[in-house]
């Protein structure tokens, strides 16, 4: 196994990302407006947190780097183990995870246009298909009835109005009952 596939290497990358985030956040705090007659500025508390995050990111960076430098073939400790992959080109399971994220983004984008029930039905049918469900009757029943039931609970019991898109007529229909 290559060193770049180990937990130690993943930790190294993770620590670098948090260091970058910390530096970016520190630069941002410099842009916060300052107020007179106060002992604590708006930037004070975030800066303490950034320093804490940077210190422990550097600790993780050094730990991981030292481990990578001293790592030998056959090491059995946790840092030498194989790290999880996020290569969605090579790994089908990661690709499935990425597709779920894209579906969620699509859900957010279409939520107000198509409404909750249609968006939720579509997203759940696609997810079931991706994870290998092939019983179409069960898939359609669950995908349609669960969002409808959820909407009904929120609409009638909790009096929360949820966008329904083209199915808006259901609100009037249920309202009349």
């Amino acid at each position: 196994m290559k060193k770049t596939q180990t937990v130690a290497f993943a930790n190294l990358i993770g620590s670098i990302l948090f260091i970058i985030l910390g530096i970016w956040a520190w630069i941002q705090t410099g842009k916060f407006e300052e107020v007179s007659n106060t002992y604590v500025q708006a930037s004070s508390f975030p800066r303490i947190m950034i320093v804490g995050m940077l210190i422990f990111s550097i600790v993780l960076f050094v730990q991981s780097l030292l481990k990578l430098l001293s790592m030998k073939e056959g090491d059995k400790d946790a840092l030498a183990a194989k790290a999880a992959s996020i290569n969605f080109v090579k790994d089908k399971s990661v690709l499935a995870g990425v597709v779920i994220i894209l579906l969620c983004i699509g859900f957010v984008a279409l939520f107000e246009i198509l409404g909750y029930v249609i968006c939720a039905a579509l997203i759940s049918v696609v997810i079931m298909y991706i994870i290998g469900k092939r019983n179409w009757l069960q898939m359609i029943l669950v995908s349609v009835l669960v969002p409808l039931g959820m909407w009904l609970i929120f609409f009638k019991v909790l009096t929360v109005n949820i966008p329904m898109g083209p199915l808006q007529f259901l609100c009037d229909l249920v309202g009349k009952i």
Binding site: I100, C104, A120, I123, S124, I127, M128, I131, K133, P147
Partner: peptide, 15 residues
Amino acid sequence: EKKLLYPIILIVSLL
């Protein structure tokens, strides 16, 4: 069946 459960959890979560 988890294949039914996960999509349900997701749509309930988003709502």
